[in-house]
């Protein structure tokens, strides 16, 4: 149990742990669902389940190094399913993992409102990071679509509230 400087009303910030099967299974499950469901319902492509899982684990563990490693691994696996070079999602999710775990130390991220706002903001940051890498390193020429990105961020924010509530049940209590 860690004690940190916090902007929350609670004096103690809990550092949650997860069992190994949960830590392995949920990222893979997120990738699997993300890969399979758009086949049946194309609009589900706007969700980014691997990103939500990254945010959840990073925030719950509240340790930057495991958070960024989680993000890097999930992002790299996500890259492997695309036709792009490996590392674009990996770098973006590494940054998100780091930021989310750093934020989790300082801010109460257990209530639905803050979860929504946090996911909304992280989605946009993730998208910006992705675009910067894609344009700067890979040399792609994808135009910026603010409207689409905002809709995606909103949708992911709402989904995060529901998903995090489900994932909370898998936290190990001391």
């Amino acid at each position: 149990m860690n004690i940190g400087v916090s902007l929350t009303s609670r004096e103690e910030i809990e550092v949650h742990r997860f069992s190994w099967p949960v830590s392995l299974l949920f990222p893979i499950l997120a990738l699997l669902i993300q890969s399979y469901l758009p086949l049946k319902m194309g609009f589900l492509r706007i969700f980014d389940l691997p990103l939500l899982v990254t945010i959840f684990f990073a925030v719950a563990r509240r340790r930057p190094v495991p958070g960024m490693i989680t993000g890097a691994l999930i992002g790299t696996l996500q890259d492997a399913l695309t036709h792009h070079p490996l590392g674009i999602f990996g770098i973006a999710k590494t940054i998100i993992g780091y930021l989310a775990s750093s934020l989790g130390v300082k801010v109460d991220v257990d209530n639905p409102g803050s979860r929504f706002l946090m996911t909304f903001a992280f989605f946009i940051i993730h998208h910006i990071a992705y675009m910067v890498i894609d344009l700067g390193l890979v040399g792609a020429s994808e135009p910026w679509q603010w409207g689409h990105t905002l809709i995606q961020a909103l949708a992911n924010g709402f989904l995060a509230v529901a998903l995090f509530a489900v994932l909370d049940r898998f936290k190990l209590r001391n």
Binding site: L31, Q34, S35, Y36, P38, L39, R45, I46, D48, L49, P50, Q78, L81, T82, H83, H84, F89, Y130, D134, E142, Q152
Partner: peptide, 13 residues
């Protein structure tokens, strides 16, 4: 067809 990339930026199956 068994799956997709799942990413909006990569339209592969």
């Amino acid at each position: 067809v068994i799956g997709t990339s799942g990413a909006d930026q990569s339209r592969v199956i």
